[in-house]
Amino acid sequence: MCSYQTRIEKAKKAIEDAEYILLGGGAGLSAAAGLTYSGKRFTNHFGPFIEKYGFTDLYSSSFYPFETQEERWAYWAKHISLNRYEVGKTKLYMNLFNLVKDKKNFVISTNVESQFEKGGFPSDKVFEIQGDYSYLQCETGCHDKLYDNELLVKEMIDKTVECQIPSNLVPKCPVCGGEMDVNLRKNQFFVQDEKWYESDMLYKRFVEKAETKKIVFMELGVGFNTPGIIRYPFEKMTYYSEDATLIRLNKDHPEGLVENKNKTISFTEDMEEVVSVLIE
Rank of each mutant, 00 (worst) to 15 (best):
D124R: 01
R185K: 14
V153D: 08
I265W: 09
E162D: 15
K263T: 03
I108N: 14
M156L: 13
L246Y: 03
I157K: 00
K213L: 10
P227V: 07
E255M: 09
L23D: 00
L35T: 00
E19W: 00
M156T: 14
R248C: 11
F66I: 05
M94S: 15
D181F: 09
Y75T: 01
A33S: 13
V170E: 03
D252N: 13
I157V: 03
T160H: 03
I279F: 10
Y4M: 04
A31M: 09
K12S: 02
L96M: 09
S81I: 05
D148H: 13
V191L: 05
V112K: 12
S109V: 09
I157Y: 03
K154R: 15
Y133K: 06
T226G: 07
T212S: 11
D17P: 06
A32S: 11
T226N: 10
R205Y: 12
K195H: 12
E113V: 09
H253N: 09
C176I: 06
V161W: 10
E16S: 03
I247E: 10
S241H: 08
G119H: 10
L246R: 00
M1V: 10
E67A: 13
K263Q: 04
S3T: 11
K125T: 06
R84T: 03
G25P: 06
M94N: 11
P65Q: 00
Q130C: 12
A210W: 09
E219A: 06
E280L: 13
G25I: 09
Y20R: 01
K186C: 15
C173L: 05
K261S: 09
L220I: 14
L96A: 00
V274W: 08
V153L: 07
A27K: 07
P65M: 00
Y37L: 02
N44D: 12
F127S: 08
V222C: 09
A18D: 02
T110V: 15
Q164C: 15
V112L: 11
Y240V: 00
S199K: 15
G131M: 02
E70I: 04
G177H: 06
R185H: 14
E219P: 02
G26M: 07
N83L: 12
R231K: 05
F189E: 06
L35M: 05
T68Q: 10
Q192Y: 13
K12N: 03
P166K: 08
Y133T: 11
E113T: 14
D252A: 10
L246A: 05
P171K: 01
M218N: 01
C142R: 10
G24W: 02
I279E: 15
Y203H: 15
Y135D: 06
F97V: 02
L152V: 15
G141D: 04
G54C: 01
L82A: 04
Y203W: 08
E208L: 02
I229Y: 00
M1E: 10
E70D: 02
N98A: 08
